[in-house]
Write a protein that binds this DNA or RNA. Structure first.
Lengths: 355, 355
DNA sequence: ATGAAAGCGCTAACAG
DNA sequence: CTGTTAGCGCTTTCAT
């Protein structure tokens, strides 16, 4: 036999004792059975209105709150969603990009609105598959992953294992999992077209095209070049990662080495900031010498030096979209990838032609 | 009787069926009892080494993972900490200040390192006491609250109710709860002293002194003024809140109305950015006309226009400190408030006298 | 070294 | 309308 009860029989233990109140305590005090308390607290019609009232009042006055662990176990139910932000193990960079943090905030809102809890955690970007742990262990009913990183394959495999999963990112060919993201091709297209409209012809592209989102943005960039009768030049493409710690040196070196571009498309606003810094170190100015377009339109993009012209991503809507996609999946709906519209926000780093 | 089992008796259900693997399945396949599986998986010495090996292998190959809900219920244990970020209900502003988000990231790291999970949520800044819900419902073993906001009183009351609680913020007189924060008095002092050393004499202060942290920073500011034989001028103090949505108009108006200050201490980097914008709108420049010091040293502070001279807060260390304080409390240690050192980071918005 | 059985706090089917 | 009872998946005492 197991003996875990702390005190022998007293409802709430001795004064100093801090036992958590349970239904059985309420039941005893109300002079009814636990089932009745359970029903009353769940607003069941089965229980006498007056009793229900009395029990509810008692529970409130005693500051009772239900043990969700027990309830969930019994009901085989769970209202927790895991939100997982990949981090770069090599550089030990953490959750830090303002854009990703904004997305997390947006998801937090969407989950709260729907009565779900959010379990936030990190995972090594090389082992995205480990994110399934939260589901496997029953801690969460599903996983929202922020970004695809380099492991489209792992994500497909997770989806194949029937893990309830939604990923913020771009839609790739042969994709088994559900993704939600901005229209990356369109974003790249808008950015490059704008720079071309300013008369720029040698447009650099900064971003790691191994990442699906960047790869798609690059397609838009290439398409815009083609529209203007131009070819992409490999020498003007720089595969800089999103982690500032790693990117800083790479970008700086690039700006020192090549002075033959007059504009640049950066795949995040943070990269844009690093690029501006690199250009300045190389004695060039933005937007006079080099026009620059960022990506994300992070909250601070308007306050940088200079304020960033950037592709606006629908952060506020992203949370709801991701959460809905996940809940839909759990309801058994076959929800495909969703692509949300983006637009170009004009500011000083690549001002309008008129300006 | 309750009939919840999905399929009659099959170990893993039919092909299409997606039942979660349990100990009983492993037990059946290994030809032992559940108790043995439990012991084996927990590395108990009680079970034969060879059996233990076999069970462990089987579990791994089947990709079994334990149901934590059940385990926690049985063990009366929980490794989840609630991290709560207050939001301003009036303005519907969400988790958004980069500094708070950085702190959240830092806590995420610290919790992960110690094997804890993080439940992230928001709470109305007027009802901080609602944060106790996560503890009361057994979802978390304790609460880390980001900021004290205006409700020192509610926090004291929560602590009095024995809620395991740690708050990021400043140490106030008569404080019952455990706080962890930067040295705010010192921060305000360093900021104002620096401006004085630049020869500035009319130094504005922007931040809502109803908030404990701001109140403490203001003390440092006043002390620095006193050292220089100056009195604080109420007309140069602006009670702007941290939420950009609300602060923008207030700051702008202030900058239009008063042109009689030559320096300003802002209580966050975001407020600093808004102030710079307001000053520009009023035809004044930073740092030429007005020298400005921010607060937080958020990741992007170095990339603003101009780069911000600001009080650096120990974000990276903050997470570990907060988590340790909470865990210490749970171990029964009487941990008092902790104040961490801050320093002034010199950049262009208030450059060194030499520059 | 292993198994049977009880019970963590809760819900719901069943029987009054 | 209410109480009794079984059981969610796990750990552990007790008995072998």
């Amino acid at each position: 036999m197991v003996k875990t009860k702390r005190s022998s029989d007293s409802p709430a233990g001795s004064a100093s004792e801090q036992r958590r109140l349970q239904m059985v305590d309420i039941a005893r005090l109300a002079g009814v059975s636990v089932s009745t308390v359970s029903r009353a607290l769940n607003g069941s019609e089965l229980v006498n209105a007056e009793t229900r009232q009395r029990v509810a009042e008692l529970a409130r006055s005693l500051n009772y709150s239900i043990n969700f662990g027990a309830r969930n176990l019994r009901l085989q139910e769970n209202k927790t969603v895991a939100v997982v932000v990949p981090f770069d193990a090599a550089s030990r960079q953490h959750i830090s990009d303002p854009f990703f943090l904004s997305i997390v905030g947006s998801i937090a809102d969407a989950l709260t609105d729907r009565g779900y809890d959010m379990l936030l955690s990190r995972v090594d970007a090389e082992r995205l598959d480990l994110a399934s742990h939260w589901f496997d262990s029953g801690k969460a009913i599903g996983v929202i992953l922020i970004g695809q990183w380099r492991h489209h394959d792992q994500l497909n495999e997770m989806a194949a294992r029937k893990l309830p999963l939604v990923v913020w990112g771009g839609e790739m060919p042969q994709q088994l999992y559900c993704s939600v993201g901005g229209d990356n091709v369109q974003g790249g297209l808008l950015a490059a077209r704008h720079l071309l409209s300013l008369g720029k012809r040698r447009i650099a592209f900064i971003g790691d095209a191994h990442l699906p989102e960047v790869w798609l943005r690059r397609q838009g960039y290439v398409q815009a070049l083609a529209e203007a009768g131009l070819q992409p030049e490999p020498a003007l493409e720089l595969a800089a990662p999103f982690e500032p710690g790693v990117a800083t040196a790479i970008v700086r070196e690039f700006c020192q080495a090549r002075r033959d571009f007059d504009a640049v498309v950066c795949c995040s606003d943070v990269l844009a900031l690093l690029t501006i810094q690199g250009l300045r170190a190389a004695g060039r100015s933005v937007p006079e010498d080099v026009a620059l377009v960022g990506y994300d339109d992070m909250p601070l993009a308007a306050y940088c030096d200079p304020p960033l012209t950037t592709v606006h991503q629908p952060v506020a809507e992203a949370g709801a979209e991701l959460v809905e996609a996940l809940l839909g999946q759990l309801r058994g709906e076959r929800s495909g990838p969703r692509t949300m519209p983006v637009y170009l926000k004009l500011r000083q780093s690549a001002p309008d032609a008129a300006a």
